[in-house]
Design a protein around this nucleic acid. Sequence first.
DNA 1: ATCCCGAGGG
DNA 2: CCCTCTGGAT
Length: 216
Amino acid sequence: MKSPALTRAPTTLLDRLAEVYPAAECSLAHRSPFELLIATILSAQCTDRRVNLVTPSLFTRYPDTANLSQAELSEVEELIRSTGFYHAKARHLIGCAQGLMQHHHGKVPATLRELISLPGVGRKTANVILGTAFQIPAMVVDTHVSRLAQRFGWTTARDPDRIETELAELLPRRYWITTSHLLIAHGRAFCKAPTPDCSTCPIFALCPRQGVTKSR
DNA sequence: ATCCCGAGGG
DNA sequence: CCCTCTGGAT
């Protein structure tokens, strides 16, 4: 069945974004589900670059779920300090590992419900895991995706859950995770809050909103 | 000073 | 819906 909304699907814009950000999808794809879970929890309010700085030593010290589940809190805190929010994140990492050991045979589950029930895993993190590690259709809605979806006129909703629903209806399932990664990449590079860099934006010509948003 | 690829808790 | 948690980049 073909939804009328699907005709609004901005395929030209997405194709162009895919050209501009060819690596957007695979930036995290090389990680195992375990490593991706850890890296995604660490990425809250923190850039990838800083996450990539601490993960090597973290994974060397705690190669798998069993090791991490028995980690000393203060030791984990020290290893991840530079990513910010380290106290909460360290507790979440260890709590996740313990949850995986107790309820999932030490492995990362592949359902939204099970993922969200892990400490420190919310809807955004869960969808990153599903879409990127398990190739299950998933729409990741973070602050970038919300902002760009609004600027592009794909939604008028503010609530992330509603935005997720609307984008999921707007786009074919196989585009969900790709679109998420492309919007995130573009939101970081040019379409920033509150003032996007429209003058150097590589997709300005295709932007449904060009010039309307206050920009530089 | 101000802002980050969030989640949990009040 | 609000607040808090954190260091680092700009």
